[in-house]
Design a protein around this nucleic acid. Structure first.
Lengths: 402, 402
DNA sequence: CTATTTCGTCATGGCGGTTTACAAATTAGT
DNA sequence: ACTAATTTGTAAACCGCCATGACGAAATAG
């Protein structure tokens, strides 16, 4: 669990394990967990046929997982077909839980998700964190974590790990925040300040949002582009079910893709970056609004009310997004593009111009654009689920601590 | 070997194999092959320590590989250190060979590469293939393949597979060419027309070029962008040592990334695509040259001679490339960008403006741009090596046929 | 010339999945 | 009802694969 949780390939099932018999065993434990988790209650025989092992082998694997509290025997299946009915197995609802946490600009949130994916405990607190020192913020977050862990404990759950979503760039060690402009954090060691003995992973909010979309989205494919605008405009690239990080961990900087090569200067040093057209600041200016709290909500409100200035601003932002996404889609050929985060709420006014731009610039069938239904819940759920996936990916690692 | 050869992850070593003891064995055979192949002659003990198996286990693996003709015992190592000297093992130079083939607009080429990576036989024939029916072209290529296979056979090599590089879009089945504009092929089933009983893979020329860069390049990292201009402008995206294909296999269409959103109309339906500025046709027009044979050579010649029109055209093309690559680099955060194919020859006049554009638009240190030293040899070598990698990735699959 | 180090191999053992066999629990057919 | 067929789960024997430990072989160090 020292490796970044969200780097674990979902179907990978601990692919990093050594090619020894023990590694094989661990991978097969993971395969059983994944199968049961994905395809609902299943008999041992059903699992065996799916993962191409014998019933006998699966029996021993299942025994081990039940003893570890990761699987539960639900009792005999309702007999519908001929033959002896199997004994239904399900992922345990009273075993380990994934704790997800989120540090937002104006709130803190924590939740506990069991292995079945159900949210079993949660806590939210509205706090103005902008510019506040990291120490107190994380101390407060730690208290919330303790509270949620205690609440989950009341239901027989114990924490398998903690994943924290942060609106900023996170180093590859998944512990320190390199830069979080909206919080005004720089090189903050979250692991140190957040006094916890749980296995910890820190990740970018948008990335966790994309993972939530991947894992919880309705029919979300294994290859897509998840676009969100929390700090700047970020695109999480999901390839074959796993996040693309880039060499320095900076992949997905859609905000600085050139849209107009000689457009207005950008803080990044370039000119005409997407952020100059579709960034929050630019859109507010174009709409004639002042910066302030919850400006995204305000935009949505005004647009819904029919404010033509706002609608025009969002239309132009959609066009710019369409141009930048044309480039990205040409380069990556994803199955879909998903609008998440703040963009989800503004989608009704962004989509028309965005899609028409993408359409008109694409030769064949254009890449479909959809809107995340998770909305602002994405990052928090993604974080908690990242812990859950890590357990599914290597059940043996937590079995000892059960 | 039915799966596309170039999709095999180099470090993957048959990761798709089942998690059974046999699969484990096969993966470990692959690990031994990869280790010996990568790190020169090695003793059994050295291999064992690198792949974290015991000497005894490695001994049995090596025995099996030697019996299959995939490894060779070179005899005792020169004793320099204390202790009994090991017996040097090397990848066999008389076992299986990878056959690479290339269908160019004006030539056919075939080569045989042994497991050590040495080219052991080759044949080139200059033919005007543009507009010629696929049947005769592939019949001629088949004859060249037979010739090279025979020549390699004289040195004790036998063909493990055939990979064909084609200047066009290849379907995901790696057998049929969807569209090859310069050859005027459409939906051509290469496997059917190229009468061969060798395991066959067909792939895009630029992709094989990128793989050659990955495998043979001098210090090429595992994450890079390989830009080439054969048909249009393509960018092969290499992530973590493997090619990114995209859902439909169309990833890497750098040529249609928008550079000037309202620039000249492009055949793809968009406006101001990179190809309108840095495509062969556009550059020739800007340079005041007529289309014709070997226009790239002509451009290089004129530029070297100091022709200011040509130099200016290439400078502008470099600028456009820089803008498009800024977007790509922001999105993918690769370690480097490599210019290959035709672009390599023009690099001296493209690079300055390309790099300055990339530099000026990037906040931190810009992504370094290098030039492929393989040049036009890339695709052919990449194809042959793809077969070799497939053998290294699953030695057991060819061991039976030895 | 002996002690030490390292290499390759052999015999033994443990571990993990397979094979085979069998009892249990259901449906289908008479 | 009662039997035949089917499917499930488990136990025992087996096989394959790697680890362990011991050994002889071949070099260096003193």
């Amino acid at each position: 669990m020292t490796a970044p949780l969200h780097e674990v390939h979902p179907a990978g099932a601990g692919r990093a394990l050594p090619d020894t018999q023990q590694g094989m065993r661990r991978r097969n434990l993971a395969r059983v967990m994944h199968t049961v988790s994905a395809d609902g209650p299943l008999s041992r025989a059903a699992v065996a046929s799916r993962i191409k092992l014998t019933r006998a082998a699966v029996s021993t694997l299942v025994d081990e997982l039940i003893r570890a509290g990761l699987l539960e025997e639900l009792g005999p299946e309702r007999p519908g077909r001929v033959g002896r009915p199997g004994s239904a197995l399900a992922v345990s609802a009273h075993g380990p839980a994934g704790i997800g946490a989120e540090v937002g600009v104006d709130h803190l949130a924590v939740c506990a998700v069991d292995l079945r994916g159900e949210v079993r405990a949660r806590a939210v607190r509205h706090v103005a964190n902008r510019g506040r020192a990291a120490g107190p913020v994380l101390a407060e977050l730690g208290a919330l974590v303790d509270q949620v862990v205690a609440e989950a404990g009341g239901e027989g759950l114990w924490p398998a790990g903690l994943a924290v979503a942060v609106p900023g760039l996170v180093a590859r060690d998944a512990r320190t925040v390199v830069r979080a402009p909206n919080l005004e954090w720089r090189d903050t060691d979250v692991g140190e300040l957040l006094a916890t003995d749980l296995p910890l992973t820190v990740g970018n909010e948008a990335n966790f949002g994309a993972l939530a979309e991947l894992w919880l989205g309705d029919g979300t494919p294994q290859d897509f582009l998840h676009v969100s605008a929390e700090i700047g405009i970020g695109a999480a690239v999901v390839v074959d079910g796993s996040l693309l990080h880039g060499t320095r961990g900076f992949a997905g900087e859609l905000g600085h893709v050139p849209v107009q090569p000689e457009g207005p200067a950008c803080a990044c040093g370039g000119r005409g970056c997407l952020e100059q057209y579709a960034g929050e600041e630019a859109v507010l200016r174009a709409a004639g609004l002042e910066p302030g709290e919850d400006r995204v909500g305000l935009l949505a409100e005004r647009a819904a009310a029919g404010d033509e200035d706002v609608r025009g601003a969002l239309r132009d932002a959609g066009t710019a997004l369409g141009i930048a996404l044309t480039g990205a889609v040409n380069l990556l050929d994803p199955r879909t593009v998903v609008l998440g985060g703040a963009l989800a709420g503004l989608a009704p006014w962004l989509l028309p111009s965005l899609e028409s731009e993408l359409d008109r610039r694409t030769a064949g069938p254009a890449c479909p654009v959809s809107v995340s239904r998770l909305g602002p819940e994405g990052p928090l759920l993604g974080a908690a689920h990242a812990v859950v996936r890590a357990v599914l990916d290597d059940p043996a690692s937590v079995a000892q601590r059960a």
